[in-house]
């Protein structure tokens, strides 16, 4: 079955970068890769002269790497600039709306919190009344039992059951909902958001000690401290400081 819909408008646009430039750099990179293979095949470096040549190979590779990186950034920069320009234009307008909403949100929050407080007070009162009714029903039941008043007992038990149901109903937690005035808006309610503050940093770190993010953070902090010591002796509790000689 043929797809009769037209292709997207800019489907023939081509890549966002200069492919000839990338091809040129790829050719140079291929030569470096090829030479690297020869170096690897040549095996251990045994003479100073060979080491110097290998050093020149590395210098050339580094220079090429740097050139590729510079060209990449140059190709990408116009897009980054355009992205920033678009963000700035749209964010300015978004911010106006966000600020406007933030002016009114606290008003609604305050209203809802007050309504919730009123509702909680009302339910507490209902619960108290239901409890008292249950206690009164229990007293009436006992009195009817002493009098051998079967009807009286039954009535008292029915009162007690009704009081228990009313108490259970009063204990149900319900959040105060706010409906739309016009029907066009969503119903809303206060939500409970839980958040933390650090009460004991030692216990907190112990709790998360097995998490990889914790390991990464600790290594990052310690490595930064070792670097800033600039070769001077340093001790960091909990860490072994090692050394290796590298190019």
């Amino acid at each position: 079955m043929n797809n009769m819909s037209p292709p997207p408008r800019d489907h023939n646009k081509g890549p966002a970068f200069n492919p000839d430039l990338v091809d040129e750099l790829a050719t140079k990179a291929d030569e470096v890769a090829d030479a690297a293979g020869e170096w690897k095949d040549a095996g251990k470096i045994e003479s100073n002269e060979q080491a110097q040549k290998a050093n020149d190979f590395l210098s050339g590779a580094r220079q090429l790497f740097k050139e590729i990186e510079e060209r990449r950034k140059a190709q990408k920069q116009p897009f980054l600039d355009a992205g920033r320009e678009i963000d700035a234009a749209f964010n300015r307008v978004k911010e106006i709306v966000e600020r406007a909403a933030n002016l009114v949100k606290p008003l609604v929050e305050t209203f809802l919190r007050e309504e919730e407080a009123k509702e909680q007070a009302r339910k507490a009162e209902e619960e108290r009344k239901a409890r008292e009714e249950a206690e009164a029903a229990e007293r009436a039941r006992k009195q009817a039992e002493e009098r051998n008043d079967v009807v009286g007992q039954q009535e008292a038990e029915e009162r007690a059951e009704a009081a228990r149901e009313a108490e259970a109903e009063a204990q149900k937690a319900e959040s105060t909902k706010l409906d739309s005035a016009t029907g066009g808006g969503k119903r809303t309610a206060l939500r409970t958001r839980r958040y933390v503050e650090i009460a004991n940093v030692n216990q907190a770190m112990l709790h998360y000690r097995m998490r990889p993010e914790m390991t990464d953070l600790l290594l990052r902090l310690a490595n930064a401290e070792v670097r800033s010591a600039k070769g001077n002796p340093i001790k960091i509790p909990g860490f072994d400081i090692k050394e290796e000689r590298k190019l």
Binding site: A35, E38, W39, D41, K53, A54, G60, Q63
Partner: peptide, 12 residues
């Protein structure tokens, strides 16, 4: 001398 143009190999 441009080392990018002249990739140094172990055996030239």
């Amino acid at each position: 001398f441009n080392l990018q143009e002249h990739v140094i190999r172990p055996i030239c």
